[in-house]
Every structure is written in C-alpha cells, then in structure tokens.
Design a protein around this nucleic acid. Structure first.
Lengths: 217, 217
DNA sequence: ACCTGAACACCGTTCAAGT
DNA sequence: ACCTGAACACCGTTCAAGT
C-alpha cells in the first residue's frame, strides 16, 4: 500500500516486523511476498536483497517471535520450570498463531530459537537426566507443545468460520450411534477437549508424571 | 497429461485415488487441482462437480487414508492397545507423508476418521476412565502422535534436500559454545532424536506411564 | 549494494455456457 | 448432472537492467 518508499530505508528488521503484522492482520495463509512488498511500498524483488526466498523470511519471523518466549524461572523445581517453559511457548503461539505454522513447517534454527532450547535442555540436565534422556525429553516436550497447540489454534480458527463450523457440527451429529457408540456418547466431552488451559495441562502433567517416575526409578 | 477423458468416467473415488498418487509422487506441497485435472484428462472445473473446493477434496483423501489404520488388537492389555493404535497411525503417516499435513490442517471428520476415534476411545473407556478423562486422553494422544510424527517427517524431508541440510548443519555448528553450552554439548544426541521408533516410543511411554499412575491412584 | 520492471510458469475459483 | 472455456485476481522467482 501507500506510496513508493525512498531508497535505503528498507532493512531486514523492518521487513520482518511488517511481515509479522501482516500475518497477524490478514492471516498466515493469506500472507504473500507480493503483499508484503506492496505494504512496504517497494517492488516484490526488493525483498530478495535481504532474504534468499520466502522460507528464509519465515525463519527470520520465527526467530523474531521466539525472542518473546520468557526465560526459565530461577529457583523453581525442575517440573515447575518445565511447565513454565512449555506454557510460555504455548501462550506465545496462541498470541501469535502464525508461530504454530512457522515452527511446524521449518527446522529449528536461529539465535532466539537456540536460546529457548538452551533453557529447557539446561533444566533437564540440571534435573539429573543423562544427555540422551535430556535430548529425547526436549524433543518430546517440544513436539507435544507444537502438536497440542497447533491443533488448538486450528480448531479455534474453524470455529470462527460459521459456515465451516456449521458443516462440522452437522457431520458430527449425523454419525450413526450404532456404528460409533462411544464417539457419539462422548461427543460433548470431546468438543470440550479441542483446546484450553485444562486440556494442555492435562497432557503436560501426563508427560511430567512419566518423567517423575523415570527420575525416581 | 494423457488425452481427454470421455464423459461420465469421472467419479469421486477415482479423483481421490489419483490425488493421493500425485501427492505421493510429486510431494504434498506441489499438489494442485489444475495438476490433478490434467492428470485425469479433464478441465480444472470438472473436479468441482464432485468436491466443493480443495479443502473438501483434502478431507476425502484424508478419510481414504484413515481407512488403512489397523483395528485395535483384541485381547491385549489397554496400554498395549493404546500403543498399537498410536504406532499404527504413526506408521501410516510415515508411509503416506501427506497424511500428516492433511490431519494437521483440517478438523477431523468422515467415516473412517470416526472409526479410528471410536477404537481408541473404546479402549480408554473399557480401561475404566471416566468420560472426561477418556476424551482428554484421546485428544492428548492424537495431538502427540500428530506433533511427533509431523516433526519427524518434516526433518526427514529437510535431510533429503542436500542444500538445505548443509545450511542447517552449518548454522548449528556455528552456535557459540559460550552462549549455548548445553545445546552445543548435546548436539549429537539432539540430532538423533529428530525421529525414529525409539524417540516415538520414548514419548508414548512417558504418556502411558503418566496414565498408569492416574489409573492406579 | 540496492532496487526496478517485465516476464515465466503457475495457482484456486467464479461465471456463463454447452451437452 | 456433468463438464468446458475464458476470465479474474492472484502467486514465487528468474533475469536483465538501472542507480
């Protein structure tokens, strides 16, 4: 939009911030390099001076967001520290839904992403887990948070589209109770597990209970 | 491709099977309705007679694949039954990588998808969990399998692209050991947790250990 | 180094029309 | 009901050129 931007006013930081604003305002899927360039008042190719391609820009936006993951709280027990990091990451994903897609579609890299990993891995090592267990646990926790929160965000987005939501409810209610007795009987409970703090903490507590058993045994 | 297909030879089943073949052969991201129509020898708009839009076709392909999730093994303990269902779903996702994206991007619906949910929910109810716990556990297990396996598939795809893989290794090795001592020290172990049966079973066993504690307590 | 402009090879979907 | 053809409003990226 707007008028043409004069030369040498563009930079990587501005591009990343504008990209993030655009994803937040118009939706992650609607984001395009052409739209971003228009918003910045430059031609699409101007962006290629700062980023190799679209994925490269995605990585930069992701790292920009990962800087907002709060640090590990000092002086807490290790399970509470793990809880804090996982909840902090989930919270950030809920505040910036594009982060879910950015984390899921690209391998981890970048300074701020490493910082988050360093925090969680440090907690696990200090808790006394050996290197392999710490690494396995880190990946398990990360993929759990990513999977659970991505799903939550996806379901919330579906609920926002009234037409899609109506169709989903219709097909759910049309399921034959003779063929799917348990799904039909538990439909209300299932609908309540598509998201929310309680559902997330339930899964996280299962993992932590398993970990505690491992640490004790 | 090929020549023009005569009228009335098209049907939903053929479209779904061809779409799946195309996703498998050329990659999920490269899939397009126009490419599918060309493969079928029809105009792009011919598909709209059978599917409302691209998402509607995606739902059909997903349900087509979910039919291949093996049934719950009878006569096993409930933790082994849970293990079997989760492993079966993961195995299918690894065999058909597009399933990961199809599950993650759309809400669950369809006959075969309901069948899989019915199986797992039935196991949990028969294990003695109340309705809410069964529903919460089902969603937790599903999002865990989805998150862990999607990540595994994504990392495997990245490894296949030599240029992207080289860049990833380079940035990992360039991380300063003074700022990220634990990440650098555990880099070999972390690289080994990006996938594989052991990594998946480790996370699944944590969840099952947490569940067992809950069932006992 | 930084950015433009035209071009290439695509997309999903609407609309009006044909059989 | 089933399918076509043209059109609309887009994409990411390459390439050659300009400052």
């Amino acid at each position: 939009m707007a008028t043409r931007t004069p030369r040498n006013t563009l930079n990587a930081e501005l591009i990343v911030r504008t990209a993030l604003d655009l994803m937040e305002a118009r939706g992650t899927d609607a984001f395009s390099l052409r739209g971003l360039a228009a918003e910045l008042g430059v031609g699409p190719m101007a962006l290629y001076t700062y980023f190799r391609n679209k994925d490269d820009l995605y990585d930069a936006v992701r790292d920009h967001l990962m800087a907002l993951v709060p640090p590990v709280p000092a002086g807490a027990s290790w399970p509470d520290q793990v809880r804090a990091v996982c909840r902090g990451l989930r919270r950030l994903m809920l505040e910036h839904p594009c982060l879910a897609q950015l984390l899921a579609s690209r391998p981890l890299s970048g300074h701020e992403t490493a910082r988050v990993a360093e925090g969680l891995l440090g907690v696990l090592r200090d808790a006394g887990f050996d290197n392999e267990t710490a690494a396995r646990t880190h990946t398990t926790l990360f993929t759990f948070v990513l999977g659970a929160t991505s799903w939550e965000i996806q379901m919330a987005a579906e609920r926002r589209d009234p037409e899609a939501w109506r169709r989903l409810r219709t097909t759910m209610e049309a399921l034959p109770a003779t063929e799917f007795p348990v799904v039909v009987a538990l439909a209300p409970e299932l609908a309540r597990t598509t998201g929310g703090d309680d559902q997330f903490d339930y899964g996280l507590d299962l993992l932590l209970a398993g970990l505690a058993a491992k640490a004790a045994g």
